[in-house]
Amino acid sequence: MVGIVIISHSRTLAEGAAEVARTMGVGKAVVEPAGGDAEGRLGTSIDLVEQAVAAANDGDGVVLLADIGSSVLTAKTLIEDAGDDVLLADAPLVEGSVAAASMAAAGAGLAAVHAAAESARDHRKAG
């Protein structure tokens, strides 16, 4: 199954988004949080993200969701060294994670899960 990694500046934000995404993935989707720096403070740790990617990847690939700033740059830096089975979704964190987890739980492949995450950009909330 395609795995999902949620990268946030905050450990609790990553864990909370992962909790929501896992529920929407009906308990089947593999969603790994990678939040905060190595000491658990606000920040980003590429080592934590690498560990989460390794934990989420069962061979079918991983989609990364990132919040802002250094989370996004860290994801892109990691992808530069990773194989082509790790993709960053250009998507809002919570909506993208939920969409990706839903599609992954349905047994879809990497490209479809990535596309589902990116489709979450267009979900309007007002107007």
């Binding site: 980003t44 740059l73 830096t77």
Partner: peptide, 15 residues
């Protein structure tokens, strides 16, 4: 620097 910096400057200087 990528591993230890923590902010956006880590990936940027590291790269």
């Amino acid at each position: 620097i990528v591993s230890r910096t923590g902010g956006a400057s880590g990936p940027l200087y590291g790269t």
